[in-house]
């Protein structure tokens, strides 16, 4: 542990990372490891929780995620809307999980109306956060390869999320696709992973 901690201190990263991929394939866990790595030199480590719980199922999911993060040292910031107004110490390392939830919170308002500009606003706000901190890890969901005819509203949502994803992929230094646990660097230095020993970090926090 001491040896590894020394590695974090000397080589902890300072990059903005965008991660996408299918559901339940290890994205969040990998993202946590990345954010942890970026919090070297005793920087604050933040988890931006975006889910707005609407029922018991959501509550249970949030509880499970909290348990999974136990021991990692994350401070949780609850921010399900107006992400641009988030207050934190911007010298820290941030993990935002997920862009997907953020868009549905802002697009499908609680009063039943639809905000057609939500995707543009969120893309701008997240770009600003990335520029402010330089240690942001964004997690999104790749929901674009279904063989299905969706209703107009669902298509608007997919299109909006793709807008944010493409913006973040342009803004971030590193873009990663997680596919069934396989981590692929789509953008960024090919040796990006070499400077951090992701497996060692992960093995320390269970799994």
């Amino acid at each position: 542990m001491d040896g590894l901690y020394a590695v974090w201190i000397t080589s902890g990263g300072s990059v903005n990372v965008f991660i996408s991929g299918g559901c339940k394939n290890g994205k969040s866990y990998f993202a946590q490891s990345l954010a942890k790595w970026q919090a070297a030199e005793n920087r604050p480590l933040y988890y931006i929780a975006t889910m707005h719980p609407v029922d018991g199922e959501d509550q249970a999911r949030i509880l499970r995620h909290r348990e999974e993060r136990q021991g990692w040292g994350f401070s949780t910031i609850e921010k399900s809307t107006e992400i641009g107004r988030m207050e934190a110490d911007f010298t820290g390392s941030f993990l935002l999980d997920s862009v997907t939830a953020l868009l549905s919170n802002e697009m499908f308002r609680r009063d039943g109306t639809i905000d057609h500009e939500a995707h543009r606003r969120i893309a701008e706000e997240l770009t600003q956060l990335a520029q402010q901190s330089n240690r942001m890890v964004f997690v999104s969901d790749y929901i674009y390869s279904d063989a299905e005819r969706y209703d107009e509203l669902t298509e608007l949502y997919r299109k909006g999320l793709a807008w944010i994803d493409r913006t973040l992929a342009r803004v971030c230094d590193v873009v990663i696709e997680v596919a069934f646990g396989r981590i692929q660097i789509i953008k960024g230095p090919a040796n990006f992973m070499e400077s951090m020993d992701i497996q060692e970090i992960q093995s320390m926090y269970g799994r």
């Binding site: 299918g22 790749y142 929901i143 674009y144 390869s145 279904d146 063989a147 299905e148 005819r149």
Partner: peptide, 22 residues
């Protein structure tokens, strides 16, 4: 061509055939 191969297997037979033929 849009890659429509990685989502949920559609309930509708025509959509399933579409996915496979694509």
């Amino acid at each position: 061509c849009t890659d429509i191969s990685s989502g949920i297997v559609p309930c509708d037979a025509e959509m399933r055939a579409w996915r496979e033929m694509t």
